[in-house]
Amino acid sequence: MTSAADKATYAEGETFTITVTVKNKSSVDAKRVHYTGGDSEGVADVVYGELRTGFDLAAGATKTVELTGKTDHAAWRYGRGFVAFQLAADNGEANDADNITSVRLLVPGAFNDLSGYVFEGKSSGAEWTPQTPGVPGFKVVATSTDGETKYAEATTDDKGLFRLSHLPAGDVLLTFTGPAGWKILTSDSSAGNHTTAQVSADDSDEPRVFVPAKKVTESSPSASPSASPSPSVSSSAGPGLPATGDNSADPGLPVTGADTMLLVGAAAVAVAVGVGLVLVARRRRVRLQV
């Protein structure tokens, strides 16, 4: 199943259309292919049409159907909404992991600040408290998730606090550059000095990103060179939508606050597309690609 929205971006309250293409790749006709459940966020008045009532699909055949809905205020607050769903057929069973699709709907327009702390920690799992020493002098740059558009930059103060102003709602990429002798820590060595964070147009002014950093002992000129571990970052982002996919399907909104820690990996926007639906008939195998 492949699914695609009719526009790249939407305004709050705007109608969207998602085109869904379903293909039966088996030699057995599929009986009443239909919507069996799903999830959504930031949308309203979703109409599944034929996906709700169901349709037969001959062996090897392909069918295109549509669903419609409207974006709502939550999509504007978080910069995006999503629709995720799964299909099944009356004459077979499907692997739940292979019959789900999700579409992300971008709704730009909201802005807010984002703040956090870079603090001293011995591991990527270190937790920040108000008594934890901060690390001053870290440069923090916020960009789009592809790194191509720069939004803002800041430097941590004596308490390790930074604040980035007027960021667009949605996912942003944060890049940390520390003073000499310091590196940031994450559980994912491939993440380097990056992490993603969610910006939302809420009323909270509390810091939502918490990044542990460690002092690195510099080798003396006579010491034998050795490979150093890749720097890493952990953060606790503010509220956000699941990804669609991402959605994943995009999950519910994360809880924010000073005591919240969220380990994250490399920056990327996870958009799930192109998943398969496998249906097993009573006597013969029905295989749908949706």
Score class of each variant (00 low, 15 high):
Pro221Ile: 15
Asp205Gln: 15
Ala223Asn: 10
Asp203Leu: 07
Ser200Leu: 01
Glu206Leu: 08
Ser222Met: 13
Thr196Gly: 06
Ser224Val: 14
Ala223Met: 11
Pro212Asn: 12
Arg208Leu: 01
Thr217Ile: 02
Asp202Lys: 03
Pro212Met: 05
Lys215Gln: 14
Asp203Glu: 13
Thr217Arg: 12
Lys215Gly: 04
Arg208Gln: 08
Gln198Pro: 00
His194Tyr: 10
Pro221Ser: 13
Thr196Val: 08
Glu206Asp: 10
Arg208Lys: 07
Ser224Asn: 06
Ser204Phe: 02
Ser222Cys: 02
Gln198Thr: 07
Ala197Asn: 01
Gly192Cys: 00
Asp202Thr: 12
Val216Tyr: 02
Ser204Lys: 14
Thr195Gln: 11
Pro225Tyr: 08
Ala223Phe: 12
Pro221Phe: 14
Ser226His: 09
Phe210Glu: 02
Val209Asn: 13
Pro221Thr: 09
Ser224Glu: 12
Thr195Met: 14
Asp202Trp: 05
Gly192Phe: 10
Thr195Tyr: 02
Arg208Cys: 05
Ala213Glu: 13
Gln198His: 11
Thr195Phe: 04
Val211Gly: 00
Pro207Val: 05
Ser219Thr: 14
Ala213Gln: 10
Val216Ser: 12
Ala213His: 02
Ser204Tyr: 09
Lys215Ile: 01
Pro207Ile: 09
Ser226Lys: 11
Ser200His: 10
Gln198Arg: 11
Val209His: 00
Pro221Gln: 04
Glu218Asn: 06
Ser204Gln: 09
Lys215Ser: 09
Pro225Gln: 10
Gly192Pro: 02
Pro207Phe: 12
Glu218Leu: 10
Ser219Leu: 10
Val209Ala: 08
Gln198Ile: 07
Gln198Ala: 04
Thr195Asp: 04
Ala201Gly: 06
